[in-house]
Design a protein around this nucleic acid. Sequence first.
DNA 1: TTGTTAAAAGACATCAATGTCTTTATTAAA
DNA 2: TTTAATAAAGACATTGATGTCTTTTAACAA
Lengths: 146, 146
Amino acid sequence: MFFSKSFGYALRSVLYVSAESEKQGKIPLEKIAEGLNVPRHFLGKVMKKLVKQGILSSQKGPNGGFFINDSTLQTPLIQFIHLTGEDDHFKSCVLRLRNCDASRPCPMHSRAEQLRDQWEEVFSKTLVSDLLNKDQPNYIDSIAIL
Amino acid sequence: MFFSKSFGYALRSVLYVSAESEKQGKIPLEKIAEGLNVPRHFLGKVMKKLVKQGILSSQKGPNGGFFINDSTLQTPLIQFIHLTGEDDHFKSCVLRLRNCDASRPCPMHSRAEQLRDQWEEVFSKTLVSDLLNKDQPNYIDSIAIL
DNA sequence: TTGTTAAAAGACATCAATGTCTTTATTAAA
DNA sequence: TTTAATAAAGACATTGATGTCTTTTAACAA
Ligand code: FES
Ligand code: FES
């Protein structure tokens, strides 16, 4: 709904790799795409960005794939928003007038501002590790499209 | 941010017509597009839908244009969401997995559900009349792109 | 060194939202 | 009855997000 598919793919992939890499080491793109039931090549582009931003790491070649690094689990969700260039979702006016400006509020401003800020807070304070629940037996199911 | 441009155009147009039609009677498309600084022909399509849904009324011919009817001011904002086919914004999963299902929650569910419901409540309970502030001297400015 | 594996990169295809332009239908006014 | 004004409708263009397919690059293993 509110955010792009790319955002969902990115976050779910990081959760998948984080949960699986303990048992399996590096996870190749193919496996992620299958596990999450997501278009493989498109996911490739998203993964590339994740690696460029340093949220995940990767290695080419045999037995290569994607794996977590020191910052992965501490990554706040807001960084996934940056990744997909949707930064201004938390800044722009609900009526699409301009960047939301409290000094020239649109008629929706007073009703929207607080809720929007609360969303931003969720995305700023929630870390990947907060969403990871490896003990939950069907955890992978909860991030896959079935 | 969260909603389509069409949604913004629709709501702003209704506010514009509501505020202006007292003084000016029927408002032609041309005038709305200029007043709001919005692409004229695209707005035409949005207005057509508003009329079909009964949110506004219209009349063709000389001195024709758009004008409010008995239900205009009592229209809840959620109807503008229907108009643009974005109903499921309040129902779908933040991770874009499927329609959000509390019995099979994704890792974001607990953090997202309440805020999303609050948005829906805002859109269900707020009426056009609640956003109308005709006494405000620069009201039109507050709904136009300048 | 060579071959194989997998990520990275790039070229295109598809689709929905948005935007422009033209044509048609309807109504009021002259 | 004609004309002009205006909404309504329809045909296309543009754009960005998404998706598919192919080629290139890097790394390991034999
Ligand atoms: S000005 Fe519109 S939401 Fe702030
Ligand atoms: S299941 Fe994902 S938000 Fe409810």
